[in-house]
Design a protein around this nucleic acid. Structure first.
Length: 768
DNA sequence: GGAGGAATGTTTTTT
DNA sequence: ACATTCCTCC
């Protein structure tokens, strides 16, 4: 035991050896958070306080869960597969599989990913003749997901105007359809589990007694529903160890609620709050900079990183004339770093939004520097893979209409739009799935669709004794997907991907501990999995607890399909041996590099202009900047550009307010500072709530701008952030200016009427 | 059913 | 600017 506690600093050690009660660990960037989490688990087991089955550890990403498992098995000779370590969604999936009857789900329920969810909503809106201009499907999806995150079903959503009533109606229709199809979306996995545990006392008490220790990673990123789930699983006696960093909360835009940290302290009667402030990653100048920047935020739980490493190099700041020049400067700096012996893969170029990568990529490519861009399509999101998966889904659960629609005519088999419509009408009239509606059709559509149904049935019959990889292989043949892509001009890659699906299936079996030869369609007891209608009677209280191993809960096929939805696979970007790393600041969270470039530090870009409209938006941007800075171990380079091409137009931006928040003694300006009073925002103009600062950016239509010439005065005298009064619209604030000369428009956020775009030569505005 | 042109919407992202 | 999706026409 001594060994695992060795080399921990006092803070880490006290976190690892906390008594069995709930506690909050404020883990700063680079403070050894994962190490503390895994060592805590190992210590609990090794000291005999708990058996592995009494522990649950929750993360947000599969990557984090895997890393935790890997580190644990390196520390302890235990089988981590049998432990409850996983993502929120993965663990809820397990619970629902074990108690599908009590959750009113079919045994083979399937998981919709975001794409599927959106197309389902689109489809339903069309079928119910709901105007998708007035109610964009995206916002309907957003409405549904946020309602679910608040724990609200369609009949419980507050409606106060025609719009919300319509959205609630869409939600209700969607909910019904999901239940009929036997599918659940991501939010539903959580909500179903929360409802199940709320309603089902014996089940709830069972798990509350089982898990004596619950550990939650990245607690600042939890949403309200996830918090409720943790609370239900913990009950009154489990010890919850919440690990997080409020300064790294950058996901409020998708429902994360930092407030959960404070709420947790109150509701779980937390007596121990431990701060991990010793940083093992960055040199002094970098940390000082990060600390100074983040101190501009109010309402922090409070934390200051320190390091034993030396001050290191000053942070370099470069002002470029244009985005192209910025990219060239980056190339030069990278060349110098690699000349000094730094590996490409230890250097990262970060940006606020993906659109910025293009120019940088171009410069790197021209300089023949190897790079890898993160983000983009992942394996299971590729169209050809989604098609193959849809066939597999139909074999597992033929009532999945989304899957049916995706492939009933792919590859094309002569089922036109009309036939599809007839089928959908029939199904809707009878309240049955498309699959079940096929026998009711007559005519040509009926014949071709029956053939399709027979294909699925034949596939099920033929493969009933096959292992999963064999089954996948056979389905690729029977569906004629491979054949189809062979005829396509550029189908090579797609065929390669489809073949990779077979090996992905084999790898999956191995990783999850399935018998590699077990029939893929049969459930754990060797029984056929029921793909029956979703309307199941709640069974008797079943206290057969969910085993952590998927192999005991699902057929290999069902398990593989959940895996495909829950873990979309790697971003299969350019895989270079020793490549530079390009990514957004968001995706850099949790990573670290010897040298980091943070680019595009301009008002409107970083902080992003949209953030000014949201409450706390600029604070979140500042945390994002904090995350970016703390990725760097030795060298940090910051850059901004006087103009850049965005959305096909040249934009003129002022430098980011964040640059001015960095202490002079930690930075070195490489370019002479441009100090036009209206060009660089004076320090005094910033407001830590961030609502506002002096800056301007406006767009012009001229296609080619001289690269270094930038000074275009805002001749109309208006500034972003100016409070204004309009005769009809009342008071507001200018949030954006565009155009120049006589064609200048201002975007104004009015206090009462929302945002309007006004022509400055026409509108009568007064400064307030 | 597929090619090709118009319309559209561009912050961040995991599950 | 550029990618994606929609829509029309053969």
């Amino acid at each position: 035991m001594q060994t695992i506690l060795e080399n921990l600093n006092p803070e880490q050690r006290s976190a690892v050896t906390l008594p069995a009660e709930s506690a909050l660990i404020l883990a700063g960037a680079g403070s050894g958070k994962t190490r503390v989490l895994t060592t805590r688990i190992a210590w609990l087991i090794q000291t005999g306080q708990i058996s592995p089955s009494g522990i649950m550890a929750v993360t947000f990403t599969n990557k984090a869960a895997k890393e935790m498992q890997a580190r644990l098995s390196a520390m302890l000779p235990i089988n981590t597969r049998s432990m409850w370590i996983g993502t929120f969604h993965g663990l809820c999936n397990r619970l629902l599989r074990a108690h599908f009857k009590d959750a009113s789900l079919p045994q083979t329920f399937q998981i919709l990913d975001s794409q599927d969810q959106l197309s389902m909503v689109k489809r339903l809106m069309k079928a119910h003749q709901i105007d998708d201009d007035k109610y964009p499907p995206r916002s309907a999806v957003y409405f549904i997901n946020s309602a679910k995150e608040q724990g609200l079903r369609a009949d419980k959503v507050m409606t106060y105007d025609p719009t919300s009533r319509q959205l609630a109606e869409i939600y209700a229709i969607y909910e019904q359809q999901c239940q009929r199809d036997g599918v659940v979306d991501f939010a539903e996995l959580l909500l179903r589990t929360v409802e199940l545990l709320t309603v089902h006392q014996p089940l709830r008490e069972h798990y509350q007694q089982r898990f004596r220790h619950i550990l939650v990673d990245e607690f600042q990123d939890t949403n309200d529903l996830q918090y409720r789930w943790i609370k239900l699983m913990a009950g009154s006696s489990a010890a919850v160890l919440a690990v997080g960093d409020d300064d790294q909360s950058i996901y409020a835009f998708r429902g994360a609620n930092v407030g959960n940290m404070a709420l947790f302290e109150r509701e779980f009667q937390v007596r121990h709050r431990i701060k991990l402030e010793q940083n093992y990653r960055s040199h002094g100048h970098i940390l000082d900079t990060a600390n100074a920047l983040i101190s501009n935020n109010v309402d922090r739980l409070g934390k200051n990183l320190r390091t034993d490493a030396g001050k290191g190099e000053l942070i370099r700041i470069q002002e470029a004339g244009s985005d192209t020049q910025e990219a060239h400067w980056i190339v030069e700096q990278i060349k110098e770093l690699t000349r000094q012996g730094m590996a490409n893969c230890d250097i990262a170029v970060l940006y606020r939004s993906n659109a910025q990568s293009r120019v940088i990529e171009h410069a790197l490519f021209s300089a023949s520097l190897p790079y890898r861009v993160y983000g983009g399509l992942r394996f299971f999101e590729r169209a050809e893979i989604k098609h193959a998966i849809a066939y597999l889904q139909l074999m597992d659960n033929p009532h999945n209409d989304s899957a049916f629609l995706r492939v009933m005519n792919f590859p094309t088999r002569g089922i036109g739009a009309k036939g599809q419509e007839t089928l959908q009408d029939t199904a809707r009239q009878r309240s049955i799935s498309l699959y079940a509606a096929v026998p009711h059709l007559t005519g040509k559509a009926g014949t071709t669709l029956s053939a399709f149904v027979r294909l699925i049935e034949a596939a099920r019959f033929e493969t009933q004794m096959m292992s999963l990889p064999e089954l996948v292989q056979r389905v690729l043949e029977m569906s004629t997907l491979i054949q189809h892509y062979q005829l396509e001009k550029e189908g090579e890659d797609r065929i390669e991907n489809l073949e990779q699906l077979v090996s992905a299936a084999a790898l999956f079996l191995k990783e999850e501990g399935f018998d590699p030869h077990a029939p893929a369609l049969l459930g754990p007891a060797g029984t056929a999995m029921s793909a029956g209608p979703a309307l199941l009677q709640p069974g008797e209280p079943e206290l057969i607890e969910a085993d952590a191993a998927l192999a005991t809960l699902m057929s290999p096929l069902s398990a593989f399909l959940s895996h495909a939805s829950l873990e979309a696979g790697d971003n299969q970007a350019q895989v270079g041996q020793d490549a530079l790393q390009l990514m957004t600041v968001h995706s850099a969270k949790g990573l670290e590099f010897d040298a980091v470039f943070i680019t595009g530090l301009e008002e409107g870009l970083f902080p992003h202009e949209n953030s000014a409209k949201e409450t706390g938006g600029v604070e979140e941007e500042r945390r994002l900047m904090y995350v970016a800075i703390t990725r760097a171990r030795q060298r940090l380079f910051l850059s901004f550009s006087q103009n850049r091409m965005l959305h096909g137009q040249v934009r003129y931006n002022t430098r980011s307010r964040f640059l001015n928040e960095l202490p002079d003694e930690n930075v070195k300006w490489l370019s002479p500072q441009n100090n036009h009073s209206w060009f660089a925002a004076p320090k005094s103009a910033w407001d830590s709530n961030g609502n506002y600062s002096e800056s301007f950016n406006f767009q012009t239509r001229s296609a080619k701008q001289p690269e270094h010439h930038i000074v275009v005065a805002n001749d109309h005298g208006w500034r972003i952030g100016q409070n204004v009064q309009h005769a009809r619209f009342g008071e507001g604030i200018i949030i954006k200016l565009e155009g120049s000369g006589s064609q200048c428009r201002a975007h104004i956020q009015f206090n009462r009427l929302g945002t309007k775009v006004l022509d400055l030569s026409v509108a009568k505005l007064e400064k307030v």
